[in-house]
Design a protein around this nucleic acid. Structure first.
Length: 319
DNA sequence: CGTTCCTCCTGCTAGC
DNA sequence: TGCTAGCAGGAGGAAC
């Protein structure tokens, strides 16, 4: 469910309400919520207790809390919301909530942080932080030349070891659009598939892929290596732009499944031009927006503004 | 190696 | 009213 703008809205809420507080206890329910954590849920509970949350960071759709313990190396509590995950800040004495898989209580006894996830595609893991592969540190020579230079890196504490394969997202300093275009030019696959592949550029999901392609006037089945560099730049520029606009209004919420830590919805669903607009007139040309199956999911596009390629890399399924 | 497909879940809605 | 099929914001791992 949540894509970059929604995860960023959640991250900001966590930063506001949780950073600076010390975790007293963590309760994880069931094994599935920590299935990506090799040592299991009990290990997560044991090792986060007594740590202080010093930062809430994010790359693409991956969110993590930087946890510090005095005299110890910082760890990252990585949280992926999957399709239906929520992080909610509740009063310590609040009513139980269905589908709560993890709950964090703080030593001030005030509020609690809950991980609620209806479809259970999301999860938690605890990992060491490693240097960000996309933000190379200064070489020894550079350090010697500028001993007083202390630029603020994108991720002060590094990134969790588990997300080394996730590319930078379009909102972070480490993002290099030219590098992404060069990668895309070498891929023989549909442009929409590449946008959804988090290893190239992260943060884009089904909603914002459809919106970016609609804005660029490019059909999602067009082949990456057949698109010109300016066309690819247009798609990527629109992807960034549409996600920035969505973040400004709190993200896209169709229902109560996506909410901020306060339970507040975003309003970008009112501004969608393609996603979920099947049958509605295209805002540019009036042609009815069409829906088709793609990668076992849905794609929404204007058949006039976004011409289907003559020989798509992956053909539409019959029907 | 790169690319594509399938599966993991629960719940809501449309249609019979 | 009740049942069922279809669909939903994601991604990792298996299979080509």
């Amino acid at each position: 469910m949540p894509e970059l703008p929604e995860v960023e809205a959640v991250r900001r809420g966590v930063a506001e309400h949780i950073v600076g507080r010390t975790i007293a206890t963590a309760t994880l329910t069931g094994h599935r919520v920590a299935r990506r954590h090799a040592a299991g849920p009990a290990d997560v509970s044991a090792r986060v207790s007594g740590t202080t949350v010093v930062a809430a960071d994010r790359r693409g759709k991956y969110l993590w809390l930087v946890l510090a313990r005095p005299q110890d190396v910082a760890q990252a509590l990585v949280i992926h919301l999957g399709m239906s995950g929520q992080l909610l800040v509740h009063r310590a004495d609040a009513e139980p909530v269905r589908h709560t898989h993890a709950s964090f209580a703080f030593d001030d006894g005030l509020s609690i942080l809950r991980f609620v996830d209806q479809r259970t595609f999301g999860g938690l893991s605890l990992l060491p932080l490693v240097p960000d592969p996309y933000v190379p540190g200064p070489t020894p020579a550079e350090r010697a030349a500028e001993p007083e230079s202390t630029p603020e890196p994108a991720h002060r504490f590094g990134v969790p070891a588990s997300i080394a394969h996730i590319g930078p997202d379009p909102m972070e300093p480490a993002y290099d659009q030219g590098a992404v275009i060069r990668v895309l030019k070498g891929r023989h696959t549909a442009i929409k598939r590449a946008l959804l592949d988090q290893s190239v550029v992260s943060g884009i999901g089904n909603i914002y892929a459809d919106e970016a392609l609609w804005r660029a006037g490019i059909h999602g089945r067009r082949d990456c290596d057949a698109l010109t560099k300016p066309a690819l730049a247009r798609v990527l520029g629109h992807a960034r732009e549409v996600m920035v606009e969505a973040l400004l209004v709190g993200g896209t919420s169709f229902d109560a499944l996506y909410v901020n830590v306060n339970g507040a919805s975003g309003y970008f669903d009112r501004s969608l031009d393609a996603y979920g607009q099947t049958g509605r007139p295209c805002r540019r040309c009036g042609t009815a927006i069409r829906r088709e199956e793609f990668m076992n999911r849905s794609s929404h596009f204007c058949p006039r503004c976004q011409r289907r390629p003559r020989t798509p890399v992956s053909r539409p399924t019959a029907g």
